[in-house]
């Protein structure tokens, strides 16, 4: 500290990368909220039989056509890319940090199991994301189809295997969020006050349960409807 040293840039350091992981992760959480609010329109026909998916289709139309949505969409896409790319980078560094593991594996009985499998839960959620994008986004926005978005969703959610896959993916997302939400705050250094920590932990727990539950409940309801 007696001389001025070259300080590496944020993205070249361990904590810097973690900070960016935290920021992108928490940003993606806001995306989940937006996405889920839209998805709830799928349930509108339940309460308003005259709707027939109209509200959802209008919403889908707006999302795909409005120029206002392009910028957030690109940011969100970048957010995903950075989050995933950094995760890969950090994971490989972490592997190198312990080339030889322990013969005897034990659990300390206190740490959260979810925190240890973020790579696994994240990867599965990513696979889900790709399939999910292919079934809806690619089909409508890239290939093009005559079906309305509501119809596509309805067909997809009448397939029990797809629904099962969707629900499992939501459970894994819950696991990922269970650790990821509060961990993002920790990486940003916002858990330095024990008073806030309890709040952050509680909100994180609620978020990690309610959001995936909200996502999962829609295909379940639509599947039940489809077999009636």
């Amino acid at each position: 500290m007696d001389t001025t040293k070259q300080v590496p840039s944020l993205l070249a350091t361990s904590i810097g990368r973690k900070i960016v992981m935290g920021i992108t992760g928490l940003f993606l959480c806001t995306f989940l909220i937006a996405h889920l609010s839209g998805n709830f329109l799928l349930l509108k026909p339940l309460f308003d039989p005259t709707d027939g998916g109209k509200a959802f289709n209008e919403y889908a139309e707006f999302m795909s056509k409005s120029p206002l949505i392009r910028l957030p969409e690109i940011i969100m896409f970048l957010g995903f890319m950075i989050h995933i790319g950094l995760a890969a980078k950090l994971t490989s560094q972490n592997k190198n940090a312990r080339p030889q593991g322990y013969v005897y594996q034990a659990n300390d009985g206190k740490t959260s199991i979810f925190s240890k499998y973020m790579g696994v839960t994240g990867s599965i959620v990513l696979i889900f994301l790709l399939i999910h994008l292919y079934s809806f986004f690619v089909k409508h926005r890239i290939i093009g189809t005559e079906e309305t978005m509501y119809e596509t969703v309805k067909i997809a959610f009448s397939n029990p295997i797809y629904v099962l896959f969707y629900v499992i993916a939501q459970i894994l997302l819950a696991f990922h969020l269970n650790h990821g939400f509060q961990s993002g705050f920790q990486s940003l250094g916002l858990k330095k006050n024990p008073k806030w920590n309890t709040l952050i932990n509680k909100v994180g727990l609620g978020f990690s349960i309610l959001i995936p539950l909200g996502f999962a409940i829609i295909p379940i309801i639509m599947y039940i409807q489809s077999i009636q």
Binding site: I15, L188, G189
Partner: peptide, 29 residues
């Protein structure tokens, strides 16, 4: 390696050093 906030360090620390310290460091950093 990098911190993934598992908290295992805090559990095994013989002196009970808390994760709050990591938050403080992240914040300062």
């Amino acid at each position: 390696g990098n911190c993934t906030n598992t908290g295992a360090c805090e559990v095994e620390c013989p002196k009970g050093i808390s994760l709050v310290n990591i938050a403080r460091m992240n914040y300062d950093y």
